[in-house]
């Protein structure tokens, strides 16, 4: 039996939103009401120019192995399949929305009568997959997956950020990536056993004359940057202390540059709670 999961590499997601579009079209979601099965957030990190970062964060149902949404559903409309996918039955769901509160990841939304009626006009009544109002959510494009295809968001991801895995298949390269521990799921401490894993973003640097730059004031003659106005660049001190390495080699690498350090990326704190 299969056990589907997703791996998301935050280092190559460029925030292009192709997955949002693909999902909305494939799954006929009420995008005009700003309701989506998956979203890509454009998140700003850091408070100053020096530590600002921009992270694109795709999110979707985590198809938990211990899904609180399934537990609270009183009709059985929401259920976990043997292949790991958590789906919602169009006919059974009466839309009490208990599941939307139970989901710790805020991945479910209400598709109401207005949305449901509008769907007919927007997508064409005859082609609708779901015809009733109720709670909707990502189902890993279950009908595509059962047809041996990939979920719409995975198939189209231009950055190869979204990758699909069958955790029961040890030869699946994405499964191997997940098992390597390079990726983390969200809020695992809640005990939901989520199946979407994120590879965190490598730390970035900005190169500019932080806070010290003031245009140098001079009209003619160019002063080397870092002259009287100083620089935070530590290497300069090393140079002043008279080291013997050839001048231009010494100037080559910024030892503080993350690239110089290692090929193992230093991880972001995005997924951890911050003080």
């Amino acid at each position: 039996m299969a056990h589907y999961a997703m791996l998301i590499d935050l280092n190559t997601c460029t925030g292009c939103n192709a997955c949002m579009a693909a999902c909305a079209v494939e799954n006929q979601t009420p995008f005009w009401s700003d309701k989506w099965r998956t979203k890509v957030h454009d998140i700003t990190k850091g408070k100053t120019d020096a530590d600002t970062a921009r992270i694109f964060f795709p999110r979707l149902c985590n198809h938990c192995d211990n899904p609180p949404c399934v537990t609270v559903c009183p009709t059985g409309a929401t259920y976990k399949m043997d292949n790991g996918i958590v789906d919602v039955d169009d006919d059974m769901c009466m839309g009490c929305q208990a599941c939307t509160l139970a989901c710790p990841y805020d991945e479910r939304y209400a598709l109401d009568y207005d949305d449901n009626t509008e769907k007919k006009a927007v997508f064409g009544e005859e082609t609708l997959k779901k015809t009733r109002p109720g709670v909707d959510k990502c189902n890993f494009c279950r009908d595509r997956v059962e047809d041996n295809r990939l979920p719409a968001c995975v198939e189209t991801c231009v950055g190869n950020a979204r990758q699909f895995a069958d955790l029961d298949n040890p030869n699946d390269p994405v499964t191997q990536l997940i098992n390597s521990g390079i990726a983390e799921p969200l809020m695992a401490h809640l005990g939901t056993k989520p199946n979407v894993y994120y590879i965190p973003v490598k730390k970035q640097t900005i190169h500019y004359e932080r806070d010290m730059f003031n245009g140098q004031n001079s009209e003619g003659g160019l002063h080397p940057v870092g002259g009287e106005n100083g620089t935070t660049f530590e290497r300069k001190q090393a140079a002043e202390s008279g080291q013997t390495e050839p001048a231009h080699e010494q100037a080559m690498f910024d030892v503080n540059s993350p690239f110089a350090n290692s090929s193992d990326a230093q991880m972001t704190d995005l997924l951890k709670v911050e003080a």
Binding site: S33, A110, Y113, N116, E125, T127, L128, T131
Partner: peptide, 21 residues
């Protein structure tokens, strides 16, 4: 925020789509 506005269905709303998919 886009939340479900609870209301009773109109006749149109109860005409669920006749999907021929």
């Amino acid at each position: 925020s886009k939340i479900a506005s609870a209301h009773l269905p109109s006749w149109d709303d109860l005409m669920f789509a006749d999907s021929k998919r």
